[in-house]
């Protein structure tokens, strides 16, 4: 009897976890659908969109650029060590450009922006929630979903691909610098190899991933902030949750999108 009870408690605990996860997923999905519906329904808040675009796109440029340059440099260095064992050094250019455009550009830019922007967004909206500013918006005839959430979601979808274009260029440039300055490659040959192996599909798939990641980062930042409770501690918890959930979702969705784009 005791064993049966223990098993039932265990199953019930798992059941509660699964139900909780389903409910949370449902709440996020409803929030996302509502946010998306406000993107296409007037009134539109152009200033709020531009402010979010500058915050996400422009102010994330330095961190994304540095990450991309160093990643390209490390990639060239590591691949030269590995490929030289098989006398395949000439493949460095293709390896760098494919890795950067298909995977590392969007994923690393996404993770960097999730840490920087997702956290700031959750903290800002969370503080607005606990200081009644969101209720104040409603009393001033302004829908908070339309004013706070929709412009940020749209800005995330627009800004991330632009950041990834920069990350792609700088990542390839990082690889080029190491290949030419340290590994003794001919610059013209290296660039020619890069251009020869790079296909439009590689870049486009990376940009699509970036748009999806941009949506996920801003969605989690807005959702966690909007639903934060309990003062400073609640805002802190919302900030942490926004970064963690966005980062995990970026990695999981990267796999799903890679399967969709590149698996026949």
């Amino acid at each position: 009897m005791v064993v049966l009870n223990a098993v039932l408690h265990f199953v019930a605990a798992i059941g509660r976890l699964v139900l909780g996860a389903c409910a949370a997923t449902g709440r996020v999905a409803v929030f996302a659908a509502l946010g998306l519906s406000h993107i296409v329904r007037p009134p539109f808040y152009g200033r709020a969109f531009l402010r979010a675009l500058v915050e996400i796109g422009f102010f994330s440029l330095p961190v994304v650029a540095l990450t991309a340059v160093f990643t390209g440099m490390v990639l060239a260095l590591q691949s030269s060590i590995g490929l030289s064992r098989f006398s395949a050094d000439s493949a460095i250019a293709s390896l760098v450009v494919l890795s950067i455009t298909r995977e590392l550009g969007p994923v690393l830019a996404g993770l960097m922006v999730a840490g920087r922007v997702g956290a700031a967004m959750a903290a800002e909206i969370g503080t607005m929630r606990v200081t009644d500013q969101i209720d104040a918006l409603t009393t001033l005839s302004t829908n908070p979903m339309k004013y706070l959430v929709a412009p940020r979601l749209l800005a995330g979808v627009v800004a991330l691909p632009m950041l990834v274009v920069v990350a792609d260029i700088l990542g390839v440039m990082g690889g080029f610098i190491i290949a030419v300055a340290k590994l003794g490659f001919n610059p013209i040959t290296y660039l020619a190899d890069t251009m020869r192996f790079m296909e439009a599909g590689d870049v486009i798939s990376g940009l699509v991933k970036a748009a999806v990641f941009g949506f996920v980062i801003t969605l989690m930042g807005c959702y966690q902030g909007y639903n934060s409770r309990g003062g400073a501690q609640g805002v802190g918890a919302a900030t942490t949750s926004a970064v963690v959930t966005a980062s995990v979702l970026i990695l999981a969705l990267d796999y799903v999108l890679t399967e969709m784009f590149f698996t026949k």
Binding site: M128, T131, D132, Q133, D135, L137, T139, S141
Partner: peptide
Amino acid sequence: REAVRAGIGMLFQNGALFDS
């Protein structure tokens, strides 16, 4: 309901001014 709400002004306890 939105139109009714537009005719109501509210002073919140902590002001709730938009700090941005």
